[in-house]
Design a binder for these strands. Structure first.
Length: 443
RNA sequence: GUGGAUGUAGCUCAGUUGGUUAGAGCACCGGUUUGUGGUACCGGGGGUCGCGGGUUCAAGUCCCGUCUUCCACCCCA
């Protein structure tokens, strides 16, 4: 047993894990670029203050923070949004809008680990800033769905649960909560899925609800409403002041607009209105959503929403924003669970088989020539038996084996073997690179 | 941070009421095989049984501590 182990919650990436990781990253990257997002990155180490400014002092308990040798209070980043806010805030006036940025980076949280939650993980973040219209929400949700599909997931294996903190805020307001109390009530609603009803009711009472039981009932009923029509009917029948009702119904018009965009994009099978989602974070200001796996153990794969006030709060110019974050750990676990991990990501194109030292030199020269053409060409280093070399050719995943034996050398040819079909043909040594390239492109 | 479970080869796991030198399959390396494939056969390397302490003539096995991983809380940016 090795004396030194990885720290709890940290991972070694052996070549197989690493190529899988790169594959996940590439899919995220390619999908983002198709949507016209640009990649950015920031430092892994940030000032502690940047984080507490966004999330409060409580967050320090979950940070890898320390004092550096210059006496600065610093922390490994637990998320990317504060960095993004700083970067965008600093150049807000110079950036063409909308700002569509994505990033893939390592983040650190000092927490007791569990399956799907490590202390170091990679997160894919995508945000649109400077665009307050629902098209930005729709595009971000679309990118989220397409990313998951491109990773190999299908409709029915995950769903994006869509909710709205604005609608909730107006609803809570109509029940008599204002300001701080309303924010507290949103926190209670966020936890209702996991907390017994009596506790929620007690919490509402503490926040000043006049009739906690009736308030809880109203909230519970509202949470279950499955679509815009039903929500509208519910609000119309509810006993409400005219102004409150107008606000709520006006917000439903925004919902219709968003949904019509999502439907036009062909995403309706991936979207589910679910008002149980509130998301605990106080800084969300509008639509919020979660990508949720619907197979196996239900887990959140990604989460996001609109946060129109955050950039300004962190010292930048006012700038509307919407985005999401998705971790590599739960995604990997899910792909493994549904057996959708890509096989043989890391395979050779050409394997050169030779017999004898002269043949080795010739093969080596050809290997370099093929490599210079962009192919992955490999050969055995020790001159093992031909049988063994063919085994290695097979396990390398190469499409073709090139055979360099005494017969071939004497005749000035190379035997090219198509590994899948087993068919062989002879190619003049002088035309080898061109011929092999042509064959390889045909598959 | 709290509570519970777990740990034997790289992986999945056997290992009797405590009793000689701790096993298997897969994987890896070599051979059968210096001209044709992931099969087959033969062989090999690899373990201070998570770590530390205790009980005992004797501990992989029993006891205590500790660490790891997993589960439920907490939290979930």
């Amino acid at each position: 047993m090795a004396t030194y182990k990885t720290l709890p919650g940290f991972r070694d990436f052996y070549p197989e894990d690493c190529s899988l990781r790169n594959h996940l990253f590439n899919v995220w990257r390619q999908t983002s670029k198709r949507f016209g997002f640009q990649e950015y990155d920031g430092p892994v180490l940030e000032s502690l203050e940047l984080l507490t400014a966004k999330s409060g002092e409580e967050i320090v308990g979950q940070l890898f923070n320390f004092e550096d040798k210059g006496g600065r209070q610093v922390t490994l980043r637990p998320e990317l949004t504060p960095t993004l806010a700083r970067m965008v805030g600093a150049k807000a006036n110079a950036l063409p809008r909308p700002v569509k940025w994505f990033s893939i980076g390592e983040n650190f949280r000092y927490e007791r680990q569990q399956k799907g939650r490590l202390r170091s993980f990679y997160q894919f973040n995508a945000d649109i800033l400077g665009e307050s219209g629902v098209i930005a929400d729709a595009e971000v949700i679309g990118l989220l769905v397409e990313s998951l599909c491109n990773q190999g997931l299908r409709a029915g294996e995950f769903v994006v649960r869509l909710s709205d903190r604005n609608l909730w805020y107006y609803f809570i307001e109509s029940l008599g909560f204002t300001g701080e109390q309303a924010m507290g009530a949103l926190g209670v609603i966020d936890k209702m899925e996991r907390v017994p009803a009596e506790k929620s009711q007690a919490a509402l009472a503490e926040l000043g609800a006049k009739d906690p039981a009736a308030t809880l009932k109203a909230i519970s009923d509202f949470q279950e409403l499955p679509d815009v029509c039903t929500i509208k009917a519910y609000l119309t029948n509810m006993d409400l002041e005219e102004s409150a009702r107008d606000k709520l119904l006006a917000r439903l018009d925004v919902w219709r607009e968003l949904l019509s965009l999502l439907i036009a994009a062909g995403l309706e099978n991936f979207i589910k209105i679910d008002l149980r989602i509130v998301r605990g974070l106080a800084y969300y200001t509008g639509f919020v959503f979660e990508a949720f796996q619907t197979v196996g153990k239900g887990r959140a794969l990604a989460g996001g929403g609109r946060y129109d006030d955050l950039i300004e709060k962190l010292g930048g110019a006012p700038m509307p924003a919407v985005g999401f974050g998705m971790g590599d750990v739960t995604l990997r676990d899910l792909l493994e669970e549904v057996d959708r991990l890509p096989k043989l990501i890391d395979k050779a194109d050409i394997y050169l088989v030779y017999s004898g030292d002269d043949a080795f030199k010739t093969a080596l020269a050809d290997a370099y020539a093929l490599r210079r053409q962009g192919l992955r060409a490999e050969l055995n280093y020790k001159g093992a038996g031909m049988g063994k070399q063919f085994k290695q050719a097979a396990s390398s995943g190469a499409d073709f084996a090139l055979v360099y034996g005494p017969d071939e050398l004497a005749k000035g040819i190379v035997t090219v073997k198509h590994m899948r079909s087993g068919e062989q043909q002879e190619v003049p040594a002088t035309q080898l690179v061109g011929s092999v390239l042509a064959l390889w492109r045909e598959g």
